[in-house]
Design a protein around this nucleic acid. Sequence first.
DNA 1: AATTCGAGCAACCGCCCTATT
DNA 2: GAATAGGGCGGTTGCTCGAAT
Length: 343
Amino acid sequence: MGRTNCIEKVELKKGPWTREEDQKLLAYIEVHGHGSWRSVPAKAGLQRCGKSCRLRWTNYLNPEIKRGKFSTQEEKTIIRLHALLGNRWSAISTHLPKRTDNEIKNYWNTRLKKRLTRMGIDPSTHKPKNNPGGSAQSRQAANLSHMAQWETARLEAEARLVRESKLSYKLQLLRKFTAPPPPPPPHPVAPPCLDVLKVWQATTTNNGFFSLPETLESPTSTLNFSGNNSTVPTVSAPDSSIIATDVIPMDNSNASGVEEEISYAQVKGKMGNSMQPYDHDNNIANTTDFDHNIVGSIDFVYANNNSDNYNIASAIVGDFEDNKNYWNELLNLVSSPMESSLF
DNA sequence: AATTCGAGCAACCGCCCTATT
DNA sequence: GAATAGGGCGGTTGCTCGAAT
């Protein structure tokens, strides 16, 4: 009853696909499309079940698929989305163009999961594996796990901000279609997600640091946000290691609004000389890291090694459009269908 | 040079959901 | 409403290959 299984069909081949089989399947789909997968093997002259053909196509033969090494940005996206969505690989894959759910799943299981484990982070919960009174190494692991915890909290908060911004944008749209048109604005109206950047900019203090509004606090975060309008969120740390990371908007656009490259000196100028930049792999960043066309979303972790209060900082430079799209897609996942129906 | 071991990944398995009859 | 077909999805397996011994 119900569905049939490949193995119920006798005389069907299993195991690795041969070059000839690949060519047959490719040739058939290029001409006819796949249509009903069940009918594909017979029409293409293959001794395989339809399901096997579908998997071979979607995970390997489809020319739309991008193969090869995952970029740092892709890794970050996977980790962020896994924290939000868990093992929903197909949902995660929708945020990684041209990557298949199978490839992402394999990459997670063979690399990212192990990496997080080594960092002292439980890959299933994205929370620290605490070891009270442990060694400096374990404390550092806890600190690193704190980074993940903070990242999760920040995701939630930013997704909320985007949602609120979208709500505001919808109200604007409603007004637009129910009221006489307002006088034209001096500049084009920004897409909704750029409101997040406005929030960021509004909370950016004179030296370019990010000061989180109270509404961004998360119950899952142990970060201590002082009520004053000081520069950087701080957290008490047990030792002088990297403690957390956050994205700080560094407005490097010129007068025309065009993003420009940012130099090491500019970054250090904004962060202050007492802070040390680190890269994603927790290596100390040097000038060469900054000197080569830094445009795009690049995070650097800054730690003040001389104080109990650790400045949480990281630079995001340029490519706001990518971030806008990223948050739009992320929001579409976490928001209700009703809410996203307008977009 | 031979063997062992582990990482990476393609492919399979079984369950679930939806559409159709 | 039940039976069936088809496809999607996540978990798991087992093969391949390179590094280590």
